[in-house]
Design a protein around this nucleic acid. Structure first.
Lengths: 106, 106
DNA sequence: TATATATGCAACTATTCGGTTTCGCAAATA
DNA sequence: TATTTGCGAAACCGAATAGTTGCATATATA
């Protein structure tokens, strides 16, 4: 069973869950209320998110509060870095183009 | 058929393809040589990447050069923004904690 | 103690996914 | 012109996936 962050955020429901619990911890029931799906379905998503450590659990009596492990999100950011360099370069190239146009106008 | 960037980058082979053609355009055959899979398989990945506009084609005779549409990658970055705010805040909170420890030492 | 509530887990199903094989088409080359 | 080469598309297959239903367990509450 493959289990990595990229596969985890591929599902739109999981992305929505992540956004939902980013700021405040929530129980599966509370989370499920926000979607047109069953609690069990949400539970499965939470399991996947927990397995790749994107989400952490906090037991409180019979309730389990889920919240986002923000640090883990940085891994996506880290992966994006290689492309960030490229799009910044492209931006600079555009800068040069603009500079040349300016020169020509003079 | 669902087709969005997040689903596109979920597959490790597709992520590798993206990295491979990020700096220079390549033909399907050339790309396939870098993986332990067939050209047809790579072709299917390229179709998916093209459909969600992460990759662009450039026809040159009977060859087709594929290259990364860097701009599209920014959409992932944009999605990450909501969490970036959170992890920066957490970092600041840690800053405060460190500041307090410093104070107590005095 | 009996009942209600919060939850995870297993079994099942329909759908999707990644890969392979085969084919057809168009461009290059002999 | 005949053959080779580069490519996409369709058909097929096994594995994975998302969702549902049913059940077991533990904690509250009456």
């Amino acid at each position: 069973m493959r289990r990595d962050i990229f596969q985890a955020i591929a599902d739109p429901t999981r992305r929505a869950i992540i956004t939902l619990i980013a700021l405040q911890a929530m129980t599966p029931n509370a989370i499920a209320e926000n979607f047109h799906t069953t609690r069990q379905s949400v539970s499965k998503h939470l399991r996947i998110l927990t397995e790749c450590e994107l989400v952490k659990q906090e037991y409180q009596g019979r309730e389990i509060y889920y919240s986002l492990e923000v640090e883990k999100m940085k891994e996506i950011d880290k992966w994006l870095n290689q492309f960030r360099k490229i799009w910044e370069t492209k931006f600079n190239q555009l800068d040069n183009v603009l500079a040349n146009i300016k020169k020509q106008k003079k």
